[in-house]
Structures are given as C-alpha cells and as structure tokens.
Write a protein that binds this DNA or RNA. Structure first.
Lengths: 264, 264
DNA sequence: CGGAGCATTGATGCCGATCAAGTCTCGTGG
DNA sequence: CCACGAGACTTGATCGGCATCAATGCTCCG
C-alpha cells in the first residue's frame, strides 16, 4: 500500500515512545550521529571531506534535530544561524508576502540543503516546514565559514550549492512564466522522479508527500487545476495515480510534454 | 528629453571614435581602471576591502570590458570563469529552455553582479546581454576564491551576494505565481525605482532600458498586457509614461497596489 | 524621408480561477 | 469494530483575465 519511505529505511523513529522515555521537549531534542554512515553523506559535503577531523569533536557536524509533521525548522524573520540538511522526511520552504499570500519555493528532501535564504541578511526569508515527521542535520554557519578558511573544497562546495539553487529557481521562473498547467505539472513530476532516482529510489513509482494545494502553491496553480491536470495525464496513459501514489507509465511521453525543469 | 543615464555620468565613451583610434577589437578591448574611484565600489566589494592590496597588481580587480548594445557578456553553455559587475549600462540575464522559450531572470544595473549562475556547474546557465552600450568589470572567479582564503569578509560577502540573489528570485516566484498583471508591473516599477534611488538617481523619474516585450518576458506577461497595464496605471493617475520614460506620480498609491517585490 | 522596430489599442477566444457539490481517506472516539 | 467528521481530492459549471490576432501609430536612425 505504501511506498518505501525515507523514514522507514533511515531510522524507524518512534516519536511517541521516545517522548515518553527521556527528553521532555522531544520535538527539539538533539541527537548525535555519525556522518560516515549517514545516507545523505554524498549529497552533503564534498567528496573526500573528512567530517570527523573537520569538526565532529567540536560539534559542527552530526547535530541531528527531529521535526514533527507540520512543525517548522525555522520561520521567516528568525535569525539565521544554521544551515540544515534534510536527512529524513520531506519539507517545504515557503515565502509569504505582505498580503499573506504564500509561495512554496521548494520541496527539499534527503540530502538537500535548507536555509540558505538567511545568509544574505542574517534573517530567514522563508518558513521551512516538515511535510512529515523528519530529521534534519544542523550546521552552524559561522563554524562552516571559519572552517572553510583552510579548505578550498569546502569553500567552493558552498558556492556551488548556492549557485545550483539559483539555477533551480530560475528554472521555476521559466516554468511559471511560460508554461501551461500540464507542462508545469509534468516538469514537477519529472523533477521529483529524477531526485528520487538519484537517491536510489524508484523513478517510476513514488508517493507525493505534499497535498494538491501545496503542489499548486509551488507551481502557480490552484489545487483544482492540479487535480484536473493529473487526471488528464492519467487519461492520456502517461501516469497512473491513486491519491498521493503516483506511477509514471510513459516517461518518454512525459518528457515530450514539457520544456523541462532541469534542476538538482 | 532624456533622463541622465549611467553611461553619460560615468564615462562618455565614444564607441566608434575609439574603434577608429586604437584597438582593432573594440568591443572586447579591456581597460584598466582604479577601483577607488569606481562609482560601483560600494556595491561591489565589502566595506573596507582594499582592492589595491588585494590584487590590483596581480590583475584580479579593475579589468574593464566594454559591451555593446545587444552583445553578450557571456552565453549559456560557455565555460564559467569570471564574475562580472555591471559598471555602466543595463543588462538582462536570460534563461532559454529546450523549446527555445525565453525567460528573463533579471535586469542587472550598475554595481550588481552577473554570472553567479555558472558557479555550480562551471558552465553558464544564462545569457547575459547588454541593453545598451555598457561596461562590466571582470573578476576571475578562481582568483576570488583563492583570495578569500585569508579574508573572512570577502568569504561571507560572496555568500551574501548569492543568498540575496536567491531571495530576489523567490520574490519573483511569488510575483509570477500569485500576482495579477497590474500587481506584477507595479512590483517591477517599484523595484526599479528603489534600485535607482540606492544609486543616487531619481526614484520618481527614470528611463526603462528594456522593451515592453522584455518586461513581459521577465514578468510572465505578453507585451500587449504590459502596455495595457501601463496605460491603466496612467489612467489611474499613479504614473505618467511616454514610451520608455516613466514618472511615478503617486508612490504610496503604487505601493498599495502590490504585494511587493522586496529584492535588492 | 523612409523603413524597421517598438508601442498602443481593439476584438475575440481560451485556459485556468472560482464557485459548488459530492466522494474518498484516514484518524479519532464511542 | 464501526461511526463519525474533518480534511483532501475529484469533477462539473461558470466566469474573467490575459493571450492571441490584428490594425494602426509612434520613434528613431540611417
């Protein structure tokens, strides 16, 4: 019935069980963890980077934090201190304008960075919310910057991360400015598919962790249009979908529909 | 008849005259220039940064390059080597998808960085085109990164630049996803106004350097809709506009129209 | 002065928003 | 275990904003 989820594979956390055991503030409880065995390792720091030597002992790496479904890693307006790497679960980053209108900027999943919006001003510009119970790894930014002094690979790694995010957003701009509803949805599905594939999961069958409303809020569409577009893709025989469970039937067919959404 | 332009104030370059004098490849001719007297200085490097000491003598700073109207600083697909700072003139950065559809990502003007899209992959993702004859300052990126090893302020400056660009784009996403044509145009005008003001120019009267088509291509609208929306704002008494010359009559009124476009 | 590119304005049509109703899913408590 | 209710999803009907098509006017440069 369910797809295998990151959470199931990674760490079968018993939220309530743990809460009743030890930490009183479970949602904020911090764990220590070994970078070497982290499945996000290859998405996080540069190749060959020695996290142990670099700072495991001074507390820079391996700071796990659990985030419950619906809770925020941080909120817009809060001071920026850490970058976060999604370790388990999926998240959304949300910009909110003066009139309260929301725009979902991205849906980060395992291995992807969250929080770079705060670097420029020292204050977060987005909310970062968990779409399901999950875990993030906190990286104190000032420590990261200091550490990068003698590590060229770390320095350029940080730049690359941000630049790629820039290009990712520009692809979204293209999508919003120039594509039809169907094209946007297809781009979105292909993007998800690709990122899942990179992480060793099926590129054909997956669960969408977000609601239709959230997809719409990301793509500049209403939830009804998202639903209708999905139905359309089903009736065209390109995908099969039952609720949040999506199966891509004809990948090549999908790719022909869209002008693409290159990122990640 | 004309507004005072950056070009007029900065350096009254006689393109053709110069071409006939010295350099055979005028458009690509490089000049050397003194950062201390550069009007973009305060927008470019961090406060107190000593460009002379840092690298004027090894050629990192002060590499001027003239770009003629319509010419490219770089094109998508070209290898990334330099960051550029717009010194004179205005530019557009353009993403082009597989189907040839264009999306203008931004309109950088004096003091703003161009080319950060190439850092992530080592290859430029955008075209960067001059909207009028202009000058950019080239900063060899590898030298910049090396230089940042012993300069914390430079390191964090680079990060801030990219992060701000990230937030700028996210504001554009908000605009494209959730705003009406009029709101988008107002956000655009307010953004231009603000950036001109920061540079000491009038925030009320300015020339749009780009065509209606380019504005539309930036905002996800057609040129007709841009034109109609401008007419509407005129008839509402919020702006006066004659071709590319725009005067903001009622700044507060404009600000009420839009959910904003925070960036820069 | 002539022509090309740019801009304005009008008429029409379509895509997606909006409004509305009904179904499905899942968590909760009886 | 089932009943219930709230939230999520689907599908239909209608409406409106913007794209599209089209014609004309304007501006600037050679």
């Amino acid at each position: 019935m369910y797809n295998t989820t990151f959470a199931e594979i990674e760490a079968p956390i018993k939220w309530h069980a743990q809460a009743s055991q030890a930490a009183p503030k479970m949602a904020l409880a911090a764990d220590r963890n070994d970078c070497e065995h982290c499945s996000s390792r290859k998405f996080c720091m540069p190749e060959g980077f020695d996290t142990k030597k670099a700072g495991a002992h001074n507390g820079v790496f391996g700071n796990m934090r659990k985030i419950k479904h619906g809770d925020a890693i941080f909120r817009a307006g809060e001071p920026f201190r850490n970058l976060y790497v999604a370790k388990v679960g999926s998240f959304k980053t949300v910009a909110i304008d003066n009139d309260g209108r929301e725009q979902i900027i991205g849906f980060p999943i395992a291995g992807e960075f969250i929080g770079m919006d705060g670097i420029g001003t020292g204050v977060h510009a987005f909310d970062a919310i968990a779409l399901e119970d999950g875990i993030v790894c906190s990286l104190p930014f000032s420590a990261l910057i200091e550490m990068s002094e003698h590590d060229l690979s770390l320095r350029s790694h940080l730049h690359k991360l941000m630049s790629r995010e820039l290009v990712r957003e520009s692809a979204l701009l293209m999508l919003m400015g120039r594509m039809t509803a169907i094209e946007r949805l297809v781009s979105f599905l292909l993007n998800i598919s690709k990122r899942y594939a990179q992480r060793g999961y099926s590129s054909h069958d997956f669960n969408l962790r977000m609601t239709r409303d959230e997809i719409g809020c990301h793509l500049g569409l209403t939830l009804e249009t998202v639903s209708r577009s999905l139905s359309k893709l089903s009736s065209l025989g390109l995908v099969k979908c039952a609720g949040k469970q999506v199966s891509i039937i004809d990948m090549a067919g999908l790719e022909q529909v869209s002008g693409h959404y290159i990122p990640h």
